[in-house]
Amino acid sequence: MKSEISIVLRRDLDFTKVRYYTLKFGDENKTELDKFYDNYQDEYSKSVYFIKMWIAEIGEKFSAESKYFRPEDNASALPPPTKELRCLDIELDQENMNLRLYCIVLSPEIVILVNGGIKESDATRDSPTCWKQYSFTSSIASQINRMIKQGDLVIKGKMLKRSKSFNLTYKK
């Protein structure tokens, strides 16, 4: 059975240049971003802090330009890409760069932070936690794109206006 999903504003992540949102299943108490932090904060604390710092820096100083996000088909991911440079900083890279937070960049001012996982191989498909969250994010991104095309979701500056007739859904 498909669950309804709402887009939730993160008031604590309302920065000067970017306002971040997240997603929440109707039948759950926690948002997807909180679930991500709960899952990885203890074991991958350094990686989580890196991602939090990038969220803050992008949000406060730069705005959500594509160069700050890893492209993942119709979705995106943090931390920012450094693939070409791994040979130079392999230690730091291995220590910090395997955790992915999937997101949907709607405009330079609006980003929906979803959930993430550990990238265990080059292909997302071969990393079970990543694949699950990527599939979810990608499905929601497609639905949101459709909503925007149909006029059911309107972006105005940092605000999102959604028509009541269109709901986001996902089969868990």
Partner: peptide
Amino acid sequence: MASKAYLNALKEIPKEIQQDVIGSIS
């Protein structure tokens, strides 16, 4: 003036991580 969200975010993130990220940009 930095936003309240940014100042609060920095309170939580260890100085070392802040410096790594800001340092690479600077």
